[in-house]
């Protein structure tokens, strides 16, 4: 029996038109305690008002700088961190209502950045890969694990009884992918899954991820800080800044026009590949502000070249661009009624 035949994801319920995942108004604030009595002194507003959906079979790329809430969002999605507020709806079933956490984790699996820290050093590779399937009570987890190892390019006869420290980073990341896929998930969240790998190994793993997506009909959420990688693998890109979504758009659309000033800065910060046309001026000054006390209004206004009074007080809403409803942006420049002096004109050149 081939590995494709053993792959048994949960049944599709809503048909292809229904998004596989809908996230509504997700929020997570981490308390910062301190002082003599350990009282909560402040809150890290890690994820705020985050809403998005992922269609069946698509790959959604999430980009943003450290501290923008990418990884917290990923952890909230599979319940590794408890959300404060918001809804997570997987294929039409809301988490906590018609869907238990255990069932959600069967359908949604995650691959993390640090391939070593996420494997139990005392378990052999085979036991690690089979572990989830065993917990979920799937039939013959070891056999399934061997097949999955073989599928990700690790010969089970050579690797099954090795320990994580005996493998290279690329091999360990293949183990993590095999472990995620052993559960037959429909959605895989890849949180900086290739970032720690060397470039030549990264390309191999990206090829593998592309093949697996096609073979098992997977949907990916691909989190990365590398825009080139995100562009390569994603259908749509979601840009986060300080815990909020600032722009969501199909890859080609966002590559042609970055509608949010932050997205534009992020794109201009990519190193040039042309020795005759190197970057002349940094697009932004300073570091991202602290998410403990994020700026009021539009959180980007402290670093934005186009900020006006309205940006300091009013929170911009995520809305479609005129003429391109798939391209969503949260910026007063695009909202004619925002009160920004250049409202409705888009981002100046």
């Amino acid at each position: 029996m081939s590995v494709t035949e053993t792959y048994a994801p949960s049944a599709d319920t809503g048909g292809p038109g229904q998004p596989l995942l809908i996230v509504r108004d997700l929020q997570k604030h981490f308390p910062v305690s301190g002082g003599l009595l350990g009282r909560t002194q402040a809150k890290v507003q890690a994820v705020d008002r985050v809403s998005f959906s992922v269609k069946k079979g698509e790959t959604l790329g999430i980009v943003g700088e450290s501290g923008c809430g990418k990884s917290t969002t990923a952890k909230l999605l599979i319940g590794l961190t408890e959300k404060d507020r918001g809804e997570i709806i997987f294929d039409g079933h809301a988490l906590g209502e018609r869907l238990s956490l255990k069932d959600l984790r069967r359908g949604v699996q995650m691959v993390f950045q640090d391939s070593y820290a996420t494997l139990n050093p005392r378990l052999t590779i085979l036991d690690s890969v089979a572990f989830g399937a065993q917990v979920q009570g799937l039939a013959d987890p070891k056999c399934l694990a061997r097949k999955m190892m073989d599928r990700v390019g690790l010969d089970p006869n050579r690797f099954a009884h090795r320990y994580p420290h005996e493998l290279s980073g690329g091999q360990r990341q293949r183990v993590n992918i095999a472990r995620a896929l052993a559960m037959s998930p429909r959605l895989v969240v890849l949180d900086e899954a290739v970032s720690a790998l060397d470039k030549s190994v990264e390309a191999q793993v990206l090829n593998l991820l592309g093949d697996l997506r096609a073979e098992f009909g997977l949907t990916y959420i691909f989190i990365s800080h590398d825009l080139n990688v995100v562009r390569f693998i994603s259908d749509r890109i979601l840009v986060m800044y300080l815990g909020e979504v600032v722009e969501v758009a199909p890859v080609d659309s966002i590559w042609a026009e970055q509608a949010h000033p932050y997205t534009r800065s992020l794109f201009s910060a990519m190193p040039s590949m042309d020795p005759d046309d190197r970057t002349k001026e940094p697009p932004l000054v300073g570091d991202p502000p602290n998410p403990i006390n994020p700026p009021k209004g539009c959180r980007f206004h402290t670093r934005c070249r186009f900020a006006a009074e309205a940006c300091k007080t009013k929170v911009p809403k995520l809305a479609g661009l005129s003429g391109n409803a798939d391209h969503l942006v949260a910026c007063h420049l695009h909202d004619a009624a925002s009160g920004h002096p250049k409202a409705g004109q888009g981002v100046p050149a």
Binding site: G170, S200, A203, Q204, G210, N228, V229, R231
Partner: peptide
């Protein structure tokens, strides 16, 4: 040449990458 290709600059989306096989 392999390193340059693996940079993914200007690579067609979703195309198969010309990855260097193996490890150092």
């Amino acid at each position: 040449q392999g390193l340059l290709a693996a940079n993914l600059h200007d690579v067609a989306r979703g195309a198969r990458l010309n990855a260097i096989p193996g490890a150092p």
